[in-house]
Design a protein around this nucleic acid. Structure first.
Lengths: 229, 229
DNA sequence: TAGATTGTTAATCGATTAACAATC
DNA sequence: TAGATTGTTAATCGATTAACAATC
């Protein structure tokens, strides 16, 4: 049916969307034709109810009694995520992270086309990384004026990141994926995602530690039981 | 006060913890001594109520009328995240991502000590990356038996990841940070965090697209108003 | 038709916010 | 003391789950 015009999706739901997409891409590749919310729920450790709720927030892609067509559903979710069309991307900062992302296979596979890399190091300027030319950072605005670009990936040192926002926004960039150690803010027409790799690692140690403490506590409780009347 | 023994923290709260930690580390470095939940809330775009709630889930680190001592609070949250002690880490897979993470400064800064890298490529084995020796993957179990290790970072191709879990768990690894394209599962004593970089990028395009659609709709509504009786 | 499964509304659960007594 | 701000309980809000009529 026609897609609904939704309010801003909740963060919780938004986080599930790419996982749905991956799952459906895999199932489609495996030759699955139809799929019930129950089957998908089992595979993804969710409830069928939540899955139907999520999909219906965007307008309902299933057939009662039959389930969902895998290919159609994958395409519909791709539309919602807007990844059924290519996106032009630039990387700013050709350090470790910048170079790794430049070479990362997952991005071209998902339609993200790396068009240029920018750096301030004269040693790097003019060279190619993963087949893509490195430009001097001073030519950023000129480049954007000539080559409309959807997304900028910032991989500079933290203190250089915020200053990039103004020329990026002025140059028509619609989204910034920021790997710099410092959060940036941008005007409302630009979407920003501040990524902190160490946060993810800290959450891992948090859960590891929590488990340890919980376990200690469990043995406490059981020895407590013995001493109860 | 003494720390409470909490239930498993919600994902929502857990995600805020590293952000608190970073913020407090920055404020401490800037010489801040005391801080109210209201001040912190303003800086982090949260409510003061939520901040007090979060902190009190672990036992309350403030003084009524005065606020929180920045250094004490940072240390307390560090304890909760278990990052006030060093963690020994190995990386498995010395491709783009593996090498970038091996060289990433943010990790040693936060007490994560990279002790060894493993790969199957004989060209790489014996070499050093960022000062750390690359071992043959076949020696993984032997290595872990000799060198107790907290965390393994998996950066192999997707189809090689799951097979690593068994030797890692047997070798006493407590947490796995998985960058491989395929999710892995592990026995209950091992905490797993499956990272999907493309998910993060898809969430960015999702929000970009959502904003576009919302804007279109806004202009619809306003032209609609004119045509209403 | 009978069985299956969606779309959707209502009920429940949990997270966030508001309020305020305790107290520095 | 008066003012400020926490710790904590109650109220609200929003997300998840349950239920079921619609319908394939």
């Amino acid at each position: 049916m026609t897609n609904k015009v939704p309010d801003r999706a909740s963060d919780a739901m938004m986080r599930r969307m790419p996982a749905y997409y991956r799952q459906l891409r895999d199932l489609e590749a495996l030759g699955f034709i139809d799929l019930s919310s129950k089957d998908l729920a089992r595979r993804m450790n969710l409830t069928d109810s939540q899955i139907r709720h999520d999909f219906n927030a965007f307008g309902g892609f299933g057939r009662r009694g039959r389930g969902y067509n895998v290919a159609l559903l994958r395409r519909s979710i791709g539309d919602i995520l807007d990844i059924n069309r290519p996106h032009d991307v630039i990387i700013i900062g050709a350090g470790n992270i910048g170079r790794a992302l430049a070479q990362y296979k997952g991005f071209p596979d998902s339609g993200f086309r790396l068009k240029a890399i920018f750096d301030s190091d004269p040693e790097l300027v003019g060279k190619k990384i993963s087949g893509v030319k490195v430009f001097n950072i001073s030519s950023l605005s000129k480049y954007l004026a000539k080559s409309p670009t959807d997304i900028a990936i910032i991989c500079t040192p933290g203190d250089k990141a915020q200053a990039l926002v103004e020329p990026l926004a002025a140059g028509g960039i619609k989204g910034i994926w920021n790997f710099a150690a410092m959060d940036i803010t941008a005007p409302p027409q630009v979407v920003v995602s501040n990524v902190h790799l160490t946060d993810s690692l800290m959450m891992l140690t948090f859960r590891m530690h929590e488990k340890e403490v919980l376990e200690e506590n469990k043995s406490w409780v059981s020895s407590d039981v013995e001493s109860k009347p």
